[in-house]
């Protein structure tokens, strides 16, 4: 198994685990908030999913760069390095990391933290799949080639910001209903 394959497989596995942990975190949070508060036992479960997300993110970053290093050595610099979809993915990963720091610093309003985290994980996962599929699906590659780097990057980021806002509205609405039911 080559260096590139090992990194690709580890990257996909940690993306799945991280996205799953982010989803589990939200589900657990809504389950725990039903009584209006999160006690110590519930906080312990949330810390576990949070740790899994953190470790998945670290492995994702390392293996992501491993993939790029493998491609660089095997094929030289390729269009992949300048893919606007991938650069949007890097931006989203940076947002995830910044979100974690701001939560730890208690500077991130909780009504945004959950939606930023959840949307970012799914968005990064989706963008990774799109990048892979553009190599296999001709119509997708043709459609994306109509836009230049800046256009495609901005379109992706606008969609991402809209998705974060929509998910924030949904999650906050659900939280209000769940707490109101008390």
């Amino acid at each position: 198994m080559s260096f590139l394959s090992i990194n690709s497989i580890a990257h996909i596995i940690s993306a799945i685990i991280g996205t799953g942990a982010a989803t589990a975190e939200e589900i657990l949070y809504f389950k725990d908030i039903r009584d209006g508060k999160i006690d110590e036992a519930e906080a312990r479960h949330l810390r576990i999913t949070y740790k899994i997300m953190h470790w998945s993110l670290i492995i994702l970053v390392l293996t992501g760069f491993g993939i790029l290093a493998g491609v660089r050595i095997k094929y030289g610099g390729t269009k992949t390095f300048y893919s606007p979809v991938l650069w949007a993915k890097y931006t989203i990963v940076l947002v995830l990391l910044a979100n974690a720091v701001l939560i730890a610093a208690r500077k991130m309003p909780m009504k945004w933290a959950g939606s930023l985290s959840l949307t970012s994980w799914y968005a990064a996962f989706a963008l990774g799949r799109i990048t892979e599929k553009t190599r296999e699906i001709k119509w997708l590659a043709d459609f994306l080639s109509k836009f230049n780097f800046v256009e495609l990057y901005l379109i992706t980021m606008v969609c991402y910001i809209l998705a974060v806002a929509i998910v924030a509205i949904i999650l906050n609405y659900l939280k209000k209903i769940i707490i109101k039911k008390q």
Binding site: L68, R72, Y75, G76, G77, F81, Y82
Partner: peptide, 9 residues
């Protein structure tokens, strides 16, 4: 990443 991407061998 930017630098490596420009090294089209």
């Amino acid at each position: 990443i930017i630098i490596s991407g420009a090294a089209r061998l």
